[in-house]
């Protein structure tokens, strides 16, 4: 994974993960009736700088060393927590995306936030910047490993297999008329190629071209298939069907020319961009077509740059 991809992945994770996934659930708290002396002892024993104040599981305030000092000055160590605590507490909800907590740290500059349940206000945890970093790293490592292993396995296939020439072939069946799933098989192809470690910009070109080829089979024929041959230095796609054939290939290659019926246009296809688009995305393209017999459209994208 490159640095850029890693940072993208971190951003995604910050949206996907919930605060509950990162927070620490072992929260030390005090009740509002406790004395300042109790607080002092707890802070000292646990070596922490502040405590959430909780009555009946509900977060009612927070008390810090500063509040404690102020209280000792005004009412001595027998004073009550409820008289010295800050009752307007900035807290976060446990079901919010992690990114919300990240932003609150930026906004307020506090070291920690109590985490509460959205509706009940019950204190369920506490979160620090360290918790967030730890959680993201843990997740990233797991995902990273899973994807890396898949990728490693797949991308080394050409090195691992000893032969004079290795070709990996994928076959995708396409049903005619199923316009609603047009692009589905190309999506599957895209995922496989990324897994094989092919550069994303090259995968994008192949995905666009095969999506067009898939649309053509769906619109004009009763069905066909995409046969994808992955070789060490290139990817060759054959879109084969037994449809009506293309009457005038030269015209069909011209942008804007289309023989698609109106109902197809209404579905967002058939604007006469398909074949020119495939040509633009590929390094080589050829069409073998016979009227009434079918079409074999082949395009090749070189993967070695």
């Amino acid at each position: 994974m490159t640095d850029n991809l890693t940072s993208l992945r971190i951003q995604e994770l910050a949206y996907e993960l919930r605060i509950a996934d990162a927070m620490s659930t072992e929260v030390i708290s005090v009740e509002s009736d406790a004395t300042i002396m109790n607080v002092r002892e707890t802070l000292r024993d646990k070596r922490i700088s502040g405590l959430p104040v909780v009555d009946n599981h509900k977060l009612v305030g927070i008390i810090s060393i500063e509040n404690l000092l102020q209280s000792v000055i005004t009412s001595g160590i027998e004073g009550r927590v409820k008289d010295s605590m800050v009752s307007e507490v900035v807290s976060v909800n446990s079901d919010e995306p992690l990114i919300y907590a990240v932003r609150k740290f930026d906004q307020f500059g506090y070291g920690r936030f109590p985490v509460v349940k959205r509706d009940s206000g019950e204190l369920v945890g506490i979160i620090t910047k360290g918790d967030i970093v730890k959680c993201l790293l843990r997740k990233l490592e797991v995902n990273f490993h899973e994807e890396e292993i898949e990728k490693y396995r797949a991308s080394h296939i050409f090195e691992d297999i000893h032969s004079d020439h290795t070709t990996l072939t994928f076959q995708y069946k396409i049903k005619g008329g199923e316009y609603k799933s047009a692009g589905k098989q190309s999506g599957n192809l895209k995922v496989n190629l990324l897994r094989l470690g092919i550069t994303p910009t090259i995968v994008r070109r192949i995905a666009i071209a095969s999506c067009e080829a898939e649309m053509n089979i769906i619109i004009f024929t009763d069905g066909g298939e995409l046969i994808v041959a992955v070789e060490e230095d290139k990817i060759k796609v054959n879109a084969i069907d037994e449809g009506p054939g293309i009457a005038d290939v030269e015209k069909a290659m011209h942008e804007g020319y289309s023989t698609a019926p109106d109902w197809v246009r209404e579905l967002g296809f058939g604007a006469g961009m398909g074949l020119p688009n495939i040509k633009n995305c590929s390094d080589e393209m050829s069409i073998d077509t016979k009227l009434g017999k079918g079409t074999n459209l082949e395009f090749i994208v070189n993967t070695r740059t």
């Binding site: 804007g256 289309s258 109106d262 246009r265 604007a271 006469g272």
Partner: peptide, 12 residues
């Protein structure tokens, strides 16, 4: 009275 903005170039 509207201007129609489109990609379509079809006869229809």
């Amino acid at each position: 009275g509207s201007l129609w903005i489109t990609l379509q170039t079809h006869l229809n």
